[in-house]
Every structure is written in structure tokens, then in C-alpha cells.
Design a protein around this nucleic acid. Structure first.
Length: 153
DNA sequence: GCCAACGTTGGC
DNA sequence: GCCAACGTTGGC
């Protein structure tokens, strides 16, 4: 099993929004970055565990746990000329963008803020804590995953 | 293929 | 709201 971290702006889609979805499941659409696309298309597997991270908000940090319930398939929001995620270079015959389905598992017992994650030497290799990082989906090692759940308290 | 200009991300 | 970092675009 693999571990991941996915960012979302709570103003746009928060962990509470995910929890309220039917089956507490939603497709992770709108990702328009090739590295992140490749991870969803090729690497994320059913049963993989995922940290939900809130970005661009008052206290950026890890807020919950999720699970991959459907593996990579074309992001149809790229096909809708009226939608904000429309990409004329993507079409159903040759989809450029992919997404996975994600299911809510639980909130963390507290928000684990970015500021605290940055203080942990054990996490210094996470892209998340590195300066200027903008990856919205990233792999998390087993060691990092376990460590974060330990400091969750 | 280089690189300047531009747009976006996201912490602060 | 500011701005640094980064990815993408497009002229050459």
C-alpha cells in the first residue's frame, strides 16, 4: 500500500465538503499539473491512504485521512467548454488530465499545522515543507506517514 | 532549444 | 494583499 498527500483549498473544497458527499466519496478533479496527473493516472491504487491537506487558508495543515476508491480515469471537467477546468487540448479520445476517486475516512484529532510539520527533522524530505513547493499531490513515505500519525496525539 | 514574460500557487 | 517560487508559453 502507498501513502499520499493531497492539497485542497477549503474555500473551494474542504474535508467537511468531502464528508457530506454521497458515500463520502468524490472525484478529485481539476488538477492541471503533469507531475500530479502522472501520480493519479499511474501510481495511486485502490486502498492507498491519503492525507487531506488544507492550503491557502488561515491555518494550512493536515486535517484528515482519505482512501483511494477508484484508480485513475479521465477528468471529464477538461471537456466542458463552460467549465472552469476546460482544456481545449484534452478530449475523450486523447484525455490529457486524469483523476481518482477519494473516500473520507476520518478527521485527524486536530489540525496538524504546516508550521509544526516544518519543525520536524524527520519530515525534512517531504516536498510539502520545502520552500516554494507547489505540488498539489505528493507521495508520503511509510516512515513519514507513521511519524505524522504519532504527532497527531 | 533558449529564455523572458506571464500566470498561478500558496505561505505569510 | 504581497511576493517568492515555480511551470508554461511563445518569440527568436
Amino acid at each position: 500500500m502507498n501513502y499520499w498527500l493531497m492539497k485542497s483549498e477549503p474555500n473551494a473544497f474542504s474535508i467537511d465538503d468531502l464528508k457530506k458527499m454521497p458515500q463520502q466519496t468524490e472525484h478529485w478533479d481539476g488538477v492541471r499539473n503533469y507531475q500530479a496527473r502522472n501520480m493519479m493516472r499511474d501510481a495511486m491504487k485502490i486502498g492507498d491512504q491519503v492525507f487531506f491537506y488544507h492550503s491557502n487558508c488561515e491555518t494550512p495543515g493536515i486535517v484528515g485521512l482519505m482512501e483511494v476508491v477508484r484508480e485513475g480515469y479521465p477528468d471529464h471537467t477538461a471537456f466542458d467548454p463552460q467549465g472552469k477546468y476546460f482544456d481545449p487540448k484534452s478530449n475523450p479520445e486523447m484525455p490529457r488530465w486524469f483523476m481518482v476517486d477519494i473516500k473520507y475516512l476520518r478527521h485527524t484529532r486536530r489540525v496538524i499545522p504546516l508550521s509544526e510539520l516544518k519543525e520536524q527533522g524527520a519530515l525534512e524530505n517531504m516536498p510539502l515543507v520545502r520552500k516554494g513547493n507547489r505540488l498539489s499531490i505528493m507521495p508520503v513515505s511509510q516512515e513519514e506517514w507513521d511519524y505524522i500519525l504519532r504527532i497527531e496525539g
